[in-house]
């Protein structure tokens, strides 16, 4: 198995192939907080419910 050389010509194409595209990252449209306890405190200040994905 060890493969064509990774070249300056195909580097950008490989970068795009490895990175997720817009469809795969659509979940980022939700403004996720990334720590549970600070989010609880924010919800208390706002008087809002919490959606928790864990």
């Amino acid at each position: 198995l060890l493969q064509p050389a990774l070249t300056t010509e195909n580097r950008a194409e490989w970068m795009a192939a490895v990175e997720p595209d817009a469809t795969e990252t659509a979940y980022r449209a939700i403004p996720w907080r990334n720590q549970f306890w600070p989010a609880v405190q924010e919800a208390r200040e706002l008087g809002r419910p919490i959606l928790f994905w864990t």
């Binding site: 907080r33 990334n34 706002l46 919490i50 959606l51």
Partner: peptide, 9 residues
């Protein structure tokens, strides 16, 4: 989800 404080942890 806009009705909630959304958090992932």
């Amino acid at each position: 989800a806009e009705n909630f404080v959304p958090v992932a942890d």
